[in-house]
């Protein structure tokens, strides 16, 4: 088993920063060059890379299932907590009704231009009274077949570790494809570019996991930086496609149907 490097060798921090994409711009060439020339440092780098990848895999394989969505949105819970603590006045229906009546009266009786001024003042009072019961707008429901805008899914951007990038598609889809391209900078991106139901994009240390519903129809695009030389696409834990750097440069497409 390789031992950690000593005099004349790189320190562990160099290897880990290389793996994590944390080296300064000028550091990377000489760190990579040294690990290619020095057998001990190359072995230590490979050891740390292997251990990092294995740890990621072991953690993923033992993670609990994601919790169900909470019954109430965070801002709803915060509002309830504030009410219990007395920081927000409880709803006062009688005051709201009075404010509305006054608003209508002002609109009907006040002479222009005073009418506009009074109406605006009453409207401000109405909003202030109505605020404690304000509910956050519920997220718009998915409307299949209603012309949902393509490409309206989530997007993530991150700096991947290592030269191998893995795209895990949790479940085979009914249709759709994954496009893999080279990114311009040092960051990788993953986004949903088509389909109605929004998939969840989970960032992994050396890749991304696309958590969509089985049998869904959706398209995705992943871009990877130049540091990534191999892209592995796994669909549903079974079928695996390996893309070379040349294929990524040219723009690759992987079908995601089962």
């Amino acid at each position: 088993m390789p031992t950690p490097p000593t005099e004349g060798h790189l320190a562990d921090e160099h290897f880990v920063r290389l793996l994590d994409g944390q080296l300064e711009a000028g550091e990377r060439p000489w760190v990579e060059g040294h690990t290619e020339r020095c057998e001990a440092c190359g072995a230590r780098l490979r050891q740390l890379r292997r251990r990092s990848a294995r740890l990621s895999g072991i953690l993923l394989a033992s993670d609990p299932a994601a919790p169900p969505a909470p019954a109430h949105a965070p801002d709803e819970l915060a509002l309830r907590r504030a009410r219990r603590a007395g920081r927000v006045p409880a709803a006062r229906p009688w005051l709201r009704a009075a404010a509305m009546a006054a608003l209508l009266l002002a609109a009907g009786l006040a002479a222009s231009p005073l009418r506009a001024v009074v109406a605006e003042w009453l409207r401000a009072q109405w909003e202030r009274v109505a605020a404690p019961d304000a509910r956050p707008a519920a997220p718009a429901a998915e409307a299949p077949g209603a012309g949902a805008e393509a490409g309206s899914g989530a997007r993530v951007q991150f700096t991947p570790r290592g030269a191998v990038f893995t795209v895990e598609v949790a479940a085979p889809q009914a249709a759709g494809a994954l496009e893999v391209r080279r990114a311009a900078g040092a960051a990788a991106t993953a986004e949903q570019t088509g389909g109605v139901a929004q998939a969840e994009l989970l960032v992994l240390p050396a890749g991304v996991r696309i958590q969509g519903a089985p049998g869904a129809t959706a398209d995705y695009r992943v871009t990877v930086p130049a540091s990534v030389r191999t892209v592995r696409v796994r669909v549903g834990g079974g079928r695996e496609t390996t893309l070379t750097a040349e294929e990524v440069e040219a723009g690759a497409r992987v079908e995601l149907d089962g």
Partner: peptide, 13 residues
């Protein structure tokens, strides 16, 4: 088992 041989281990240094 972080040091076990793995077919998926990165070899592209």
């Amino acid at each position: 088992p972080l040091d076990e041989d793995d077919d998926d281990a990165d070899t592209a240094d």
